Computed example of a mutant assay.
Amino acid sequence: MTAAETTTVELITAPTDAPASSLTLTDGAAEKVRSLLDQEGRDDLRLRVAVQPGGCSGMQYQLFFDERSLDGDVELSLSGVPVVVDRMSAPYLGGATIDFTDTIEQQGFTIDNPNASGGCACGNSFCG
């Protein structure tokens, strides 16, 4: 996971109810992240999860390893995986679940986010 992995979403509203601490990582995703961290061979990296404007319909997720600490970061330990979320992304990730899929049809991280609605033909975007 040296390059940022992105998925595009459109968020219904700017959520305020669920904090980033309600973000979850499935066992499969945690296992994959731990494996990738082991490959990197560094103990200062954490999985950074961010939401940024872009993509074909609104917002996109970015997942990447990061050693930085930014002002206002929310630091989590999910299934033994160090995860960090910036303060601007945190409200959008409340209640979201990160999973890892490894099938013939698809391989990669997916994010199930209750703040996103509808699906587009590309499979990576969500429409309102």
Rank of each mutant, 00 (worst) to 15 (best):
M1P: 06
M1G: 12
M1Y: 05
A3T: 13
A4K: 05
E5N: 10
E5G: 01
T7R: 10
T8E: 08
V9Q: 07
L11P: 02
I12F: 09
T13H: 05
P15L: 15
T16N: 04
A18Y: 04
P19Y: 01
P19G: 07
P19M: 09
A20T: 12
S21I: 03
S21F: 11
S22V: 10
T24R: 13
L25E: 00
L25C: 05
L25I: 04
T26W: 08
D27V: 01
D27S: 11
D27H: 15
G28F: 06
G28Q: 13
A29C: 02
A30F: 01
K32G: 00
K32D: 00
K32F: 04
V33H: 03
R34A: 04
S35R: 05
S35F: 02
L36E: 03
L36A: 00
L36G: 06
L45C: 03
L47R: 01
L47H: 01
R48A: 10
R48E: 13
A50P: 06
A50E: 04
A50C: 11
V51F: 13
Q52A: 14
C56E: 03
S57K: 05
S57C: 08
G58M: 12
G58L: 07
Y61H: 06
Y61D: 10
Q62D: 09
L63I: 00
L63C: 01
F64A: 03
F64L: 00
F65G: 05
F65N: 01
E67P: 01
E67K: 02
G72T: 07
G72M: 05
D73G: 09
D73M: 09
D73P: 14
E75D: 15
L76I: 02
S77T: 15
L78R: 03
S79D: 05
S79H: 08
G80P: 01
P82R: 07
V83I: 11
V83E: 00
V83A: 07
V85K: 10
D86C: 15
D86V: 08
D86Y: 06
D86T: 13
R87L: 02
S89A: 06
A90L: 09
A90V: 15
A90M: 06
Y92N: 06
L93M: 15
L93I: 11
A96R: 09
I98T: 01
I98K: 03
I98E: 00
I98C: 01
D99G: 13
T101K: 04
D102Q: 02
I104S: 13
E105Y: 04
Q106R: 09
Q107G: 08
G108A: 09
F109A: 05
F109W: 12
T110Q: 02
T110G: 07
N113M: 14
N113T: 11
P114M: 14
P114I: 14
N115V: 15
A116S: 12
G118D: 05
C122K: 05
N124K: 12
N124W: 10
G128C: 15
G128L: 15
